[in-house]
Write a protein that binds this DNA or RNA. Sequence first.
DNA 1: TATTGTTATACTCTATAACTATA
DNA 2: TATAGTTATAGAGTATAACAATA
Lengths: 158, 158
Amino acid sequence: MKRTARPVVAPNTDVATITEDTIRSFAGYNIKRAFNVVQTDLNRTLKPFGLRMVTFTALALIVDNPGLRLSQLAQSLGIERPNLVVIVDDLEARDLITRDKVPQDRRAYALHATLAGRVLRDKSVAAVEEHEKRVYSAVTEAEIRALVQVLRKIESNG
Amino acid sequence: MKRTARPVVAPNTDVATITEDTIRSFAGYNIKRAFNVVQTDLNRTLKPFGLRMVTFTALALIVDNPGLRLSQLAQSLGIERPNLVVIVDDLEARDLITRDKVPQDRRAYALHATLAGRVLRDKSVAAVEEHEKRVYSAVTEAEIRALVQVLRKIESNG
DNA sequence: TATTGTTATACTCTATAACTATA
DNA sequence: TATAGTTATAGAGTATAACAATA
């Protein structure tokens, strides 16, 4: 959060010339803006499949981890249980997943993807790969790996 | 988006053992979760000052760029003009900034921070610095710089 | 007592269309 | 015609309290 001089902005100065010293060294806002760009492009990408960022991720996790509990999924997604319920409701209503009773624990439900769910996952994953090529075109593979690593460190700090 | 085998999750498997291959290589979700951690901690930090992430950033930008127009500020913040209006309303109502008529262009308003606004900015910047130390404690200075650089490349791709 | 899934609720964030007054 | 600021509105995302059923 270093700050330098504070130049006055002329009446019709271009935004590019605005001093953002405070914000430039404020990583939080960079994460925010980058996230916004990524999410907007991703949601546009997933719209034809009837999916959003969260629903896509939830479906992918259920496909890869059959028998997942709702609370485990919520933790993996980093969202609160109440917010996940409606997401699971949506996926179930569209017959992409099932909520199966667990004999060992009658409070819990085991989540399983249906055939349709697996098919939609595969199709949408392909689209997401295209999206990633587009959004990360200016960044190298190594940079993305480093990015993800740092983001995970930050995340585990919360 | 590489995927490997899909192990079955045992009834009471810990979340840490869940296969997240799909998501682990899905940078978008890492950005989302990290952003969430940062924003939550930051908003908690700013609450005593009556500020949120956006209002803090807006105030800081106005302090550093006296005479800023609303549309310039919106562009700098990466948000739509309509959403900024209520933010500026809030800051103005609390006498932290002023909306001054511009003789050259009677449509526009020049934004200026008041003394109270500058004082609040300085106080909250100090708190934000503490927040950054906390949230980025597991990351080096160099890693943060690299992170911000990559995020900017992603952002400029939107 | 604690936990799973759930309902209800409220607040924030974001996007879009459309208006007004000026340019 | 285009732009600056504004109004209204709707959709997502997120967080919290509290409940029933079960552990």
